[in-house]
């Protein structure tokens, strides 16, 4: 059982694939937030061997957790209030990704107009395919199938 004693309000992201915690730190834009974050690398896991854990102390609605569904849906998201787990959030593939990934198509308008938002939409849920809203170039999500 995970010790959440130190957190009053926030989230604990458990079962992160070992080594991925820093990229999640960036995707969640935790570097831009003024809150208390603990990253645990290579923790022991019966299920995974090794895993990473991130604990964030902040009001829940300040975090865009939907992006986690895009990164890896197997991450366990524990919502903490008053020092206890009050809910676990199911991760789904977000319908839209804004400024999370970038279009690599050199013919895309975003390649010359950098001030445009990078917007991808979920084109095929079954195949987990995202496409650039502008040029429709495919981007494959890193989420793995069970």
């Amino acid at each position: 059982m995970l010790n959440v004693g130190q957190l009053n309000e926030g989230v604990v992201l458990d079962h992160i694939e070992a080594g991925k915690s820093m990229s999640i730190y960036k995707y969640l834009k935790l570097d831009q937030m003024d809150c208390c974050v603990a990253i645990i690398k290579n923790a022991h896991s019966n299920k995974m061997g090794k895993k990473d854990i991130i604990k964030v102390e902040c009001p829940i609605d300040e975090l865009d957790l939907n992006v986690l569904g895009f990164i890896d849906h197997r991450i366990t998201v524990n919502i903490i209030q008053n020092g206890a787990i009050v809910a676990k959030k199911d991760l789904k593939l977000p319908k839209k990704l804004i400024n999370i990934i970038h279009c690599k198509n050199p013919r895309c308008i975003t390649s010359i107009e950098q001030e445009l938002d990078q917007i991808f939409f979920l084109a095929d849920e079954e195949r987990e395919t995202y496409r650039c809203m502008y040029c429709e170039e495919k981007y494959r999500s890193s989420r793995k199938k069970n």
Binding site: N105, R107, C108, I109, T110, S111, I112, E113, L116, C132, M133, Y134, C135, E136, E137
Partner: peptide
């Protein structure tokens, strides 16, 4: 007409 894809959408 634009050489860059998505320009009319923008």
């Amino acid at each position: 007409r634009h050489p860059k894809e998505g320009a009319p959408l923008v």
